[in-house]
């Protein structure tokens, strides 16, 4: 059967590559794409030309047919902007040497940037799988795990526990969207910001407090057994 014959010629099968997407290389590439770093103009093809080619490559019938003209104009207009500003987009958030870690990371759960010699992680989704945070730190070359546990409002954002090598670490709460909010009184309206030094590759797990969901059992590290959060702990000032 010719299909089997041809199948044997394949250099690799998809199954052989299963899980590659979850590795640090693929994660760093994904971060760069989302950050827009790959839209910068390259040395060979003008960006407008690539965008036009990409548009032509769109499958017929899959995109909304009626929007094609508009879509094309927008794509070309956007591409011209990229062509004009493109090279300026290349910057410090590119990988250091092509194979090393990325210098920044962003996805829907966490964002890591460099600020004044520190890596600053902003937790965008405090309920995300902790592996997502670990993958993010791995993408920037750090062996840091973040565990978030539900705590009473007064303890949100506090460092609760450190496992492994204890380096310099600090945490803070920042208002989401820059809204003027007193994070200490309304922690649920704020984002946890964690600063760790860029240097050092020791493996460490930090546990921080996050707002409890309504009815969720909160951890009270030093005061005996866990207790239930008040039903409105997530959305109101606490104490």
């Amino acid at each position: 059967m010719t299909d089997n014959d041809v199948d044997r010629l394949a250099r690799v099968r998809d199954d052989d590559l299963a899980g590659t997407h979850a590795g640090p290389a693929a994660a760093a590439l994904r971060t760069a794409i989302i950050a827009g770093e790959l839209t910068a103009a390259g040395p060979r093809t003008p960006a407008w030309r690539r965008a036009a080619d990409a548009w032509r490559g769109e499958p017929k019938g899959l995109a909304a047919q009626g929007k094609r003209g508009v879509t094309r104009r927008l794509a070309l207009a956007a591409a011209v902007v990229v062509a004009v500003t493109g090279t300026a987009v290349l910057g410090p958030s590119l990988v250091e040497d092509g194979t090393g870690p990325a210098t920044s990371y962003a996805d829907s759960t966490i964002e890591i940037t460099r600020e004044n010699g520190d890596l600053v992680a902003r937790i965008k989704d405090p309920l995300a799988d902790r592996q997502r945070y670990a993958d993010a730190f791995k993408a920037v070359g750090k062996n840091v795990e973040i565990v978030l546990v539900p705590v009473p409002p007064a303890m949100v954002g506090d460092l609760i526990n450190t496992q492994g090598h204890s380096g310099r670490v600090s945490s803070d709460l920042e208002p989401i969207d820059g809204n003027p909010v007193d994070c200490r009184s309304v922690p649920a309206a704020c984002m946890l910001v964690i600063r760790v030094p860029i240097d050092g590759d020791a493996s460490v797990t930090y546990t921080f407090g996050r707002p409890a969901r309504p009815g969720e059992t909160v951890a009270v590290p030093d005061d005996g057994p866990a207790r239930d959060a008040p039903p409105d702990a997530h959305s109101t000032a606490g104490g």
């Binding site: 052989d16 590659t20 590795g23 290389a25 590439l29 060979r44 092509g98």
Partner: peptide
């Protein structure tokens, strides 16, 4: 010859080089 070299793709290339 119209696709750029992506510096960021090099780490991905490292993962599949053995297939060649």
């Amino acid at each position: 010859g119209q696709v750029r070299r992506h510096t960021l793709a090099r780490a991905v290339a490292d993962q599949v080089r053995g297939r060649y």
